[in-house]
Design a protein around this nucleic acid. Sequence first.
DNA 1: TTGCTTTGAGAACGTTCGTTCTCTATGGTT
DNA 2: AACCATAGAGAACGAACGTTCTCAAAGCAA
Lengths: 199, 199
Amino acid sequence: MMDERVRERVLNAADRLYYGRGIQSVGMDELRRASGVSLKGLYGVFPSKAAIVLEVLDRRHALWNTGVTDRVARAETPRAKLLAIYDYLSDWFSDDTFRGCGFINAFAELGSISPEVAERAREHKAGFQSFVAGLVADAGADPDLAPQLSILAEGAQTTAAIAGTGEAAVHARHAAEILIDAAMLSGATSASECPSAKA
Amino acid sequence: MMDERVRERVLNAADRLYYGRGIQSVGMDELRRASGVSLKGLYGVFPSKAAIVLEVLDRRHALWNTGVTDRVARAETPRAKLLAIYDYLSDWFSDDTFRGCGFINAFAELGSISPEVAERAREHKAGFQSFVAGLVADAGADPDLAPQLSILAEGAQTTAAIAGTGEAAVHARHAAEILIDAAMLSGATSASECPSAKA
DNA sequence: TTGCTTTGAGAACGTTCGTTCTCTATGGTT
DNA sequence: AACCATAGAGAACGAACGTTCTCAAAGCAA
């Protein structure tokens, strides 16, 4: 089988298994069975399990980035773009394979014993935070809004994962609306006006 | 050695090791070495590693509860009590052994293969959420504020853990102030007044 | 001292892990 | 047909895991 096809099948199976059941709980034998690639083929394309884990994280990072970027791009106003993040989360949470953020999970499992995994998690989160910061800047809002919205998104993911329900996305979106409205005021002017709380 | 002292030493060591390096990464032999309790003594008091894990989680749950409850009790106004949560987080984050929420970590590692661990995590989070809901009710604010504040606290914990810095607590506290102010308006009356954004 | 119980240190057991090796069968080339 | 490179299935290996067992030392009763 061609190398690229082998890689694809292994990484697909590995992502599904690692995300669904945890990295340490899934052995190479199960990955062989799930991917249909023999152990020899597997080690012919990847040097080790650790390398597979890192590639799985990289793919998941790219998938998340395009997913949220596309969703945000479909919104029109700067405010709607910020809120689109939580709509994307809401859809994700209602996927019945949802089991929290793969990077948070990987970090919790391996972050303290694998510097590479910890670094991927940090990069992933930092990337998201700077993406949000860009949207906040486009909206002309107070820059402090960015970490606030990032924290909301983060909290929604873990809350939804542990609770097993997706309602956290709705709550986070609601909170985001309020924070955005407050930050659009203090970002543009110095908050001397007195508008009503809701539009 | 007396059983209670053995339990104490084992659970202290287990909590430190499991929290610091992950549960699956710490073997019984290392726990024996760290606790100074022989393997025989260990299995004389606990039936299995899984039982130790659950007791560690229970202790951590109790510790968190008393810690945050005490901190909240020291605040005077309902608003200050809600914000005290984030001050507690801020102190926790600056502890150099901080490595995120132990329940999120345990859930990520074992939630999908250990129903008991998953249940402890759910109970822990549900307990915190209803604690916050009580404070929100005491403050006379819109009940929707409670999940919003819980999500902020959750997000601050994972953000601080992965970033390795504690600044998320400050951002979360800031966001909480804005959300509280908004919810105190819509909770007490039907938001017909027009106050300034900050007190 | 003698005998009995308890205990700690760590060897041992069975399993599982990641990784490598063996062997066989297959498919393509001449 | 003869040859050879390849690749799959799974055995094999060393290490680590959770758990149990062995055995010698130590404490205590008589």
